[in-house]
Structures are given as C-alpha cells and as structure tokens.
Computed example of a mutant assay.
Amino acid sequence: MVHFTCDLCGKDLGAGEPRFVVKIAAYPGFDPDQITEDDLDEDHMEAVAEVLRSEQNQGTGSSQEEGYRGFRYDLCPSCHQKFLKDPLGKDLIRSFDLSDFSNN
C-alpha cells in the first residue's frame, strides 16, 4: 500500500483522503532577439527528439547541466490552499522582519 504525507506540514494522507500534487519546473529562459528566415526554414524535429531522449534518460544529468530542475510535492487540502494563495512564499518573507535581530 502506498503511503502519502503532506510535504509541507507532514500530515498523514490516508487512503481515500484528498491530496494535491504540485509540480514545479525551473529552467533558463530564452528570449531570441530576432527570428530570421533561416530559423523558420530550419527543421526542428531533431532538436525536439533530442529533448525527448534527454528527458527519458534523466539519469545522465544532461538536463541538470542545462539548468533544468523539476520538483514534485504532495499537499493536503489545507496546504494546497495556502500554496495557491502564495505560491512563492512572498508573504512569509515579508513577515520575517530582520530588524528584530539587529540588537543581537
């Protein structure tokens, strides 16, 4: 039997209990300055095939070297709602006031 716990609060998610899966992908952005006629004429299917092959062989680390990183989390309904309201945790960072530690 597969056992799940919330990756945020640690709550046991028993069989039949709702859980939410959050997947996050981080990778370098690419903004071409200019698309040329050569770019449009080029056949990109080989490049697509190469990306698919590298994803299937993730153990090789090629995607890690290029800056791609994937994450997967199981969340309980309560933590899922919190995540949806503030996915980057910006509210938590704002509430952490470093001036409280200036007297140390």
Rank of each mutant, 00 (worst) to 15 (best):
M1H: 06
V2L: 06
V2S: 04
H3G: 07
F4L: 11
F4R: 15
T5G: 06
C6M: 03
L8A: 09
L8Q: 12
L8Y: 07
C9T: 04
G10A: 15
G10W: 13
K11H: 10
K11G: 07
D12S: 12
L13D: 02
L13P: 02
L13E: 04
L13S: 01
G14V: 06
E17C: 06
V21G: 04
V22P: 03
V22I: 11
K23G: 09
K23E: 11
I24G: 01
A25Q: 07
A25N: 08
A26V: 08
Y27C: 05
Y27R: 11
P28I: 11
P28E: 03
F30A: 12
F30D: 12
D31A: 13
P32A: 07
P32M: 05
D33F: 02
Q34H: 04
Q34A: 06
I35K: 13
I35H: 05
T36H: 00
E37F: 08
D38V: 01
D38W: 03
D38Y: 00
D39W: 08
D39T: 05
D39C: 06
L40G: 07
L40T: 05
D41E: 13
D41F: 11
D41Q: 10
E42T: 12
D43G: 13
D43T: 10
D43E: 13
E46H: 12
E46M: 08
A47T: 12
A47Y: 09
A47C: 02
A47L: 13
V48C: 04
A49C: 06
A49N: 14
E50M: 03
V51Y: 08
V51E: 14
V51Q: 13
S54C: 02
S54W: 01
Q56G: 10
Q56F: 09
N57H: 08
N57T: 04
Q58C: 03
Q58I: 11
Q58H: 10
T60S: 14
T60D: 15
T60P: 01
G61S: 00
S62C: 01
S62K: 10
S62R: 08
S63R: 14
S63D: 09
Q64R: 14
Q64G: 07
E65C: 01
E65Q: 05
E66S: 09
E66R: 14
E66Y: 08
G67S: 07
Y68P: 00
Y68V: 12
Y68H: 08
Y68I: 06
R69E: 12
F71V: 01
R72K: 06
Y73H: 04
Y73D: 06
D74I: 09
L75Q: 00
L75C: 00
P77T: 07
C79A: 02
C79F: 05
H80V: 02
Q81T: 11
K82C: 06
K82L: 10
F83Q: 04
F83E: 01
L84K: 13
D86C: 06
P87R: 03
P87E: 02
L88P: 01
L88E: 05
L88A: 06
L88G: 04
K90M: 13
D91G: 15
D91K: 14
L92W: 13
L92K: 15
L92R: 10
L92T: 09
R94H: 13
R94G: 05
S95K: 14
F96T: 12
D97N: 14
D97W: 02
L98D: 11
S99N: 09
D100V: 13
D100G: 05
D100M: 12
N103G: 06
N103V: 05
N103S: 14
N103W: 14
N104E: 15
N104S: 11
